[in-house]
Amino acid sequence: MTPTLSIIIPVYNKEQYIVRCLSSILEQSYSDFEIIVINDGSKDFSGSLIEGIARYEKRIHYYKFENAGVSVARNRGIALAKGTYIMFIDADDWIDKGYLKNIMNKVEKSSADLYIWGITKDFEDRTHRVWLPYMCGYYSVIDFLRNFIQEQYESHRGLYGYISNKLLKRDIVEKWNIRFKETLKLMEDYDFFLTYYEYCKDVILFDEIGYHYVAGTEFSSGKRIKKTDFISIIDIHRKCLNLLKNKNALTSQNENMLLSAIKNIAFAVFWEMTPICRKEIKEALKNLLSRPEVLKSFNETNSQKEKLLAKMITQKNEWGLFWFTHCWRIYLKLRRL
């Protein structure tokens, strides 16, 4: 029998958390689901623990692969899913009793291509923070896109990019072959949902907060990020900008917020450059100047420092950028003394 809901869980070295995660799902009063667990090459006892639980629970479908990263693991889960709807839960997170019933009750009483709700963020010191969407109720995708930017880019809570607070229709994912971009190491979830938003007609938002996002375990979920790919992050914000344009949902306020984000990341390419060398600077200039949104974002520079940096980037002043970045690094070291 085909389940209504497919829950996809990627796992990499989560022996401390996986039993709690699976138990919190299996104890739900709502039961019309399958759990697809993708073991992404764990080197600890995660696999043994999952196998032990799956032996007595037919709703768990367990698969083991060589380590390839969380995006590959999630894509494998999508390919294996059979439910009408797809939900993602991370292996170090857990859900409250009644959580799935509350979510699926919303689905039964309404019809939308996407459901979004809140999360509870749990910290290592046992404190927690509740994040709820500012929006609530039914929205056409155009109205949703017009309104979500302010919250996403001003509050920096990232609710509209999180993987864990959304319910998707599997037929939309399959029809348009929506997958996680496997080359991305940061913001791959936001990139995924920007693609999904493109094919939505409507969205329902509500105030459920039964999902517990456990902070501080990020680096045990796959390959470590050795270097931030700022150009890829800029491209994700450009993708958002183009999505709003294509959907006639771009306002002057939204555009300014997106351009400000692009500008700050373009500057971070040089602030965070390691090592500082002309070869890296030359490559950065090539990438930045080939993206017209970057040049447009410089119109909003405020401080003299930003104006000087923007001018050197625009003029391809490699030596100026080399010495400017070196001096900035020395200044930061002196400040810390």
Rank of each mutant, 00 (worst) to 15 (best):
W131A: 12
T120I: 12
F33Q: 01
S48E: 08
G161V: 11
W319R: 07
E293M: 01
S71W: 01
G161S: 13
E306K: 00
H326C: 14
C240W: 10
V72I: 13
W319G: 08
L295R: 01
S23K: 02
M273R: 00
E57T: 05
K279W: 13
F123V: 06
W328Q: 03
E15F: 06
L321G: 09
F298N: 03
N75S: 04
S221E: 14
L205R: 02
S29R: 07
A249Y: 11
A310W: 06
W131L: 15
L168C: 07
V72K: 04
E272F: 06
F206I: 11
E51K: 04
D171A: 12
L241I: 04
T120S: 13
Y197H: 03
K14Y: 07
R126S: 13
E280L: 08
D92W: 00
K305T: 14
I86M: 08
F206S: 04
G41L: 08
L194S: 05
F123Q: 01
S6E: 13
A112H: 01
N177A: 13
Y138Q: 08
E34H: 00
I95H: 05
A91W: 05
F65S: 05
C136K: 15
S46N: 02
A79W: 13
P275F: 10
A268H: 03
H61I: 07
V269H: 00
N246C: 07
N105F: 07
H237E: 10
T4D: 06
Y153H: 04
P10M: 06
K316P: 03
V37F: 12
I225C: 15
C277F: 05
F230T: 07
